[in-house]
Design a protein around this nucleic acid. Structure first.
Lengths: 213, 213
DNA sequence: TGTTGTGAAAACCTTCACAGCG
DNA sequence: CGCTGTGAAGGTTTTCACAACA
């Protein structure tokens, strides 16, 4: 089955929330609870769970553990997925810290930077390689996903190197839009756009509900 | 007129691209050029520009400078908008650097951190205040937008303080979903969700076109 | 009673396709 | 001729509303 972008995003958010609930010993949850935590409507939650074929029970709601497992079945790659990071400035280090002890499914297995002073350092448990080793290391790890955390002028160049090394998906944190062949899946996190959007909608006094991400 | 979220995002991207073109002395641009730079279809660009009432000319396309101005008329607040940042770790510093010399419209006018060692430092041209001064400084600057760059456990707490100080829109960079009254516009940049999305769609060999942000 | 599951409707967004123009 | 501007069509996503059920 093919899930839409929006659905994948919501499933990911549901799972984060469910894991939280699990830690608090919750075993079941109602659609309206999950909905208000996730910032969507209860009907949306029910529809999403219906789409992935997870059933609840009118008395107790949905089973938390089972739902986490079913979402995992959709989102996670069976053997886990390796991710590489390019750029170890403030942003790159922030991302490493973020994913430091994250879910086993996605692991940042290598970082690259052109600053020779950083070579072979271990930052947040992750080894830093020079750009020249990119091809070789990416191939060795079998990573399919890359994170671009370099300044605007290097971004396009770095993206091309990653694609040549076999990467299929990119998280682009630079303010530059990448021009890529269309078999590459690119997600831009453009902070300038995000802030402009917030500025715009917070000016209008909209009673606005917001979805994750 | 009310613009949709998607449109605001695209307008913001168009503007970034147009400013780039302006620097390269381009005076006019065709819908299909802007489209391929922005990663959308030409029809979409024409529809968007129609919506904001900007007309082109079948011979030369759309005037770059005029379009930048019209988009600005929609996106920018007349007097500019002040933004405050909470959290001066790696992520916070990366954001400051990012917006260091950004467009005059959005300015980060103050940063807050609970680490006493950072008090009164000037980071990237921006003064750092203690959390206790938040209320007072936000009121003084009239900021309406806040950026949350603190670790997960502090996020909800910080968001509430910002709301109490009068903030109306939030950029949440923590992995925590915020529970907010619904007159507050929240945008979550959840890296975990983004990465999971990329991992998912890059696995399926979709010939996928991607829109900004 | 309060919840799930779900057809059907509504809302929204994107693309098509072509007339009209420079 | 190749582009813009746009009504109409098409597609997708969200919400409604209610039967079925524990």
């Amino acid at each position: 089955m093919m899930l839409s972008e929006g659905m994948v995003e919501r499933l990911s958010v549901y799972r984060q929330l469910l894991v939280c609930l699990e830690h608090r010993q919750r075993t079941d949850v109602f659609s309206h609870e999950l909905a208000s935590l996730a910032g969507v409507t209860a009907a949306q939650v029910r529809r999403d769970l219906m789409t992935i074929g997870y059933s609840g029970n009118p008395r107790r709601g949905y089973g938390v553990a089972g739902l986490v497992a079913v979402i995992g079945g959709y989102l996670d790659s069976p053997g886990g997925q390796a991710v590489v990071l390019v750029g170890l400035g403030n942003l790159g280090r922030a991302i490493l810290a973020y994913f430091n002890e994250r879910r086993q499914g996605l692991r940042i297995v290598a970082a690259f930077d052109r600053d020779p002073a950083k070579m072979d350092q271990i930052v947040q448990g992750c080894r830093c390689y020079p750009m020249e080793k990119l091809q070789e290391v990416v191939a060795g790890t079998g990573a399919q996903v890359g994170i671009i955390a370099v300044p605007r002028d290097g971004a396009q160049q770095v993206a091309l190197q990653l694609v040549r090394a076999g990467i299929r998906g990119l998280l682009n944190l630079s303010p530059m839009r990448l021009v890529m062949p269309d078999y590459i899946y690119v997600e831009d996190l453009n902070m300038a756009s995000s802030l402009e959007k917030i500025a715009f909608f917070s000016r209008r006094q909209t009673g606005e509900k917001k979805v994750a991400q």
